Amino acid sequence: MINTFNIPEHLHERLRSELKAGEIITWAGQPIPSIYMKSGMKLWFFFIPWTAFSIFWIAGASGFEIPSFEEGWSLFPLFGLPFFLIGIMGLSSPFWLKKNARSMVYAVTDQRAITISGIKTITVKSIPLDQIKNIERIQHANGSGDLILQTRTYLDNDGDRSTEKFGFFAIDNVKKVQTEIEQLLKSQS
């Protein structure tokens, strides 16, 4: 099968390996890494103060001085180190999202919608086309955006209501992809 979509060959091969016999790809694409990473920027509103407070706490626990090891050394300031590391990990999450976007592929076939993600461990999610009911499109001025194909509400382990969205996030020309899916759905009904 020839790679007529604008995706790297190794991802096209990964997609081909997931296809059922006779299944035909009608569209395939990837998230735009620079836009996909922006979803992680919202976390910065939490992790900037978290990290700043952990630094302040470590400094306060050491008496706002660089420790001198002449009188022994207190381990107490090190209790703030895990919180500082969590803050650094949270602040770096947009960059991890950007890296992960390069290993993701989205596809629509004549039978289902598929997302494949992961670098070492691969996660494949798909929904049959007949389960796509209310498509939600979030479009930016440049034509990119998110296409939500299915929203599922469920109760988590604590009994709280949670929502899971399946779709294609941070894709280019989102309206065109929506139109292609809607035409495919019409042709099958």
Rank of each mutant, 00 (worst) to 15 (best):
I55C: 01
G159R: 04
Y106V: 03
F168Q: 12
W27G: 04
G167I: 07
K42E: 14
A28T: 00
A113S: 05
L19D: 10
E71T: 02
T121Y: 15
S189H: 12
R161F: 13
Q188R: 06
K175D: 06
W50A: 05
R161K: 07
A21P: 13
M37W: 08
V174E: 02
R112I: 02
V177D: 03
E182H: 08
T179R: 15
F53K: 01
A59E: 14
Q178D: 09
K20V: 05
P77W: 09
I55S: 00
N134G: 14
L78I: 03
T179F: 14
S144P: 10
D146F: 14
K99E: 11
E65Y: 10
K133D: 04
P128M: 04
F168K: 05
G40S: 03
P31R: 00
S103A: 14
P67Q: 05
L149H: 03
D158V: 00
K98L: 07
I181V: 11
L185V: 05
D146P: 13
W96L: 10
I171K: 00
K175H: 10
G143W: 10
W44Q: 01
K99H: 10
F79D: 03
V177L: 09
E136G: 14
I2Y: 15
F95Q: 05
I2A: 08
P31G: 01
I181D: 09
M104A: 11
F46N: 08
I66V: 05
E65N: 10
S187P: 06
M41D: 05
I181K: 12
L184E: 07
H140G: 02
S62I: 08
E18M: 14
L149G: 03
F83S: 02
E180V: 07
N134P: 14
N3S: 14
F95Y: 10
A28L: 04
D146C: 04
I55A: 03
W57I: 07
N6H: 14
S103I: 15
F166Q: 06
F169Y: 05
Q188S: 07
